[in-house]
Design a protein around this nucleic acid. Structure first.
Lengths: 212, 212
DNA sequence: CGAGAATTTGAATCTCTTCAATCTGCGTGG
DNA sequence: CCACGCAGATTGAAGAGATTCAAATTCTCG
């Protein structure tokens, strides 16, 4: 009984590169991200890697587990991560008030994936990077973690390459093009978007579309 | 009362190219596919198109709608489609026996998308086509619609291009390479896979991985 | 301050795209 | 029954975007 209500009982921490979940291993619970970033990915036998999801503060990692699934792709922390662990089931009982954010997390994740399929399948390098930076800024903003037109972005260019399906070298070159055009300022893990409308145009997103 | 139990009341049909759902328009219901194929897609302003989901017999189109979402991408029939329309909510009451297949459809769709992110982001044309054909064959097989090592595949090369993020021309050339190598036989909307193991290898899928 | 990680730069190469033309299969109508 | 028309499939040649490999530079942190 006591263990059920002790608040720090379910607080967990991860260090960068530490596994939060391994493929086909029952996770210890569902993680409600409080701080830090994590990602889901797959590595092919020859080393090619693709990141398939990014978990930011406020996200559930990973809603599917509550529907009786095991992780089909590993998840690692990208930064220091602080999270609340909750039982691997759809929030109910005392946690029932979490239901809305749980379902939102699940469906948002699905829709983001559908959008990324379009980006990876049909957009150019410049469009992919624009799309990624817009999405991340918007997600940070919605979590109250953006300050004006800037926010933290704790990814290396290699992480960005694995997100966008490009090589690190090409990410670097394209980022420089974008800086030259005044589309973004990105340095030392900090992102600034001087003109959101211009970046949206570069992302080949019609003004009407949602970013996330 | 009567209308609730009349069995053909909820049977609906669509013709090729007919919209099953439009972006941001409340759909008439959830469609449980009985026969035929449909797809979800997005078109960019300059005409580039990416298909983001394929609905085959047995699939729910589209589980998200039951969780209070509107379609974020349009859905059209690719062939003649016969489907059962059910209310836009998680199956309950008299339909409660559909719950397992409903949740499975939802999570399977998510996992397929995650796999496709890897394919679009990191795999070559030959690997993408191999992956697509394997997935489709496996899904048809699980629905009892495969015969030995063959099944129907009612897609044009242009559809395949929009699924794999390639151009129709390149799909054509790559398909010929695959035919030459004896990896597939594909003609007049009919697919035959002489050697599944060989095709899996071509898809850069380790033998342990699931296809879908 | 030193060492490893991350970023930047250059040159050559390759995969895939683009544009254009031709060929094939098939249903319709004369 | 054959001609026509059209969508889909096929082929060729040239070009663009991204990759690869290698090396140099800068950053970050212990």
């Amino acid at each position: 009984m006591l263990s059920q209500i002790a608040p720090d009982e379910d607080l967990v921490f991860f260090r960068p590169h530490e596994f939060i979940a391994r493929e086909s291993e029952q996770p210890a619970g569902l993680y409600h991200m409080l701080e830090g970033w994590a990602c889901r990915y797959r590595t092919l036998s020859d080393g090619r890697r693709q990141i398939t999801a990014l978990y930011l503060p406020g996200d559930y990692c990973e809603p599917h587990w509550a529907l009786g699934r095991m992780p089909s792709q590993p998840i690692v922390a990208l930064t220091n991560v602080r999270a609340k662990r909750v039982p691997c089931q759809v929030p109910s009982g005392a946690l029932a008030d979490h239901q809305p954010s749980f379902w939102k997390s699940l469906v948002d994740g699905c829709e983001r994936q559908a959008n990324w399929l379009v980006t990876l399948g049909r957009r150019t390098a410049l469009e992919r990077l624009s799309h990624l930076l817009l999405e991340l800024f918007e997600r940070m903003r919605q979590s109250g973690l953006a300050y004006g037109q800037q926010c933290a972005l704790p990814l290396t260019q290699m992480d960005i390459a694995d997100l966008t399906g490009l090589t690190p070298v090409h990410v670097n070159r394209t980022l420089q093009t974008m800086r030259t055009k005044g589309l973004v300022e990105l340095q030392s893990k900090w992102l600034r978007i001087p003109d959101v409308a211009a970046l949206r145009q570069a992302a080949a997103i019609s003004q009407a579309d949602a970013v996330i």
